[in-house]
């Protein structure tokens, strides 16, 4: 039974058991550390949101032939994400989304306007003025119908080993509601309707 192969098998199974135990411990400890450092109550301030509308007819902008409403925004953003950085943080993916409803009660939409990959604690303080959205946004339908959209700043922590962690920042001023804006409409769209 003590052949070369069985020895290798024994060693490798012991090794993999240790690796599994060690990574579970690392995952749990780094999660606990995130709680302690207040990662799940991070504050942010998003303001000065100015949406702009353009009509697009190419597939790259969601059109299937008919002109499609495309919305971009300009915004200001203040947030300090440095508590997310500890010894087990590989990167933080931070993304600004807008959430809006639909024609029926059960429809919900969430779209990303802007995102950023942060790989070091030194870059984790965000202070953006007049930042332009990274993406041009269209809906499944041809028009956004001028709906209200609430703005969320989410983050996703990518660990060196362990669980992917997700969270959303809260507004600086806890009394104020979430930042929001109205999806712009084409002027003659109202006349047709």
């Amino acid at each position: 039974m003590h052949s070369f192969v069985s020895r290798v098998q024994q060693r490798s199974s012991t090794f993999s058991t240790y690796v599994i135990i060690a990574s579970v411990v690392v995952a749990i400890v780094s999660l606990a550390q995130l709680y302690v450092s207040g990662a799940f109550g991070l504050q942010s301030e998003v303001g000065g949101i100015r949406p702009t509308l353009s009509m697009r007819t190419s597939r790259r902008f969601g059109s299937t032939g008919k002109p499609k409403e495309n919305v971009r925004i300009v915004f200001d953003l203040d947030a300090d994400l440095s508590p997310l950085f500890n010894w087990n943080t590989k990167q933080v993916f931070v993304y600004l989304t807008a959430e809006y409803g639909g024609a029926r009660e059960d429809i919900s939409n969430e779209v990303t306007f802007w995102d950023k990959i942060i790989t070091s604690k030194a870059d984790a303080k965000l202070a953006l003025q007049n930042e332009r959205s990274k993406y041009s946004i269209w809906d499944v339908k041809e028009s956004f119908e001028g709906r209200n959209a609430t703005v969320h700043l989410h983050w996703n922590l990518q660990p060196k080993v362990g669980f992917l962690v997700y969270g959303e920042t809260v507004a600086h001023d806890s009394e104020s509601s979430k930042p929001w804006f109205i999806m712009p409409r084409e002027k003659n769209a109202d006349k047709e309707a």
Binding site: F93, G102, R104, D106, I107, S108, N109, E110, V111, T112, Y135, I137, D139, V140
Partner: peptide, 14 residues
Amino acid sequence: HRVLRQHASSRKQL
């Protein structure tokens, strides 16, 4: 890849 947008109803999600 990462989800950039979602459009959901009670029946399906795009």
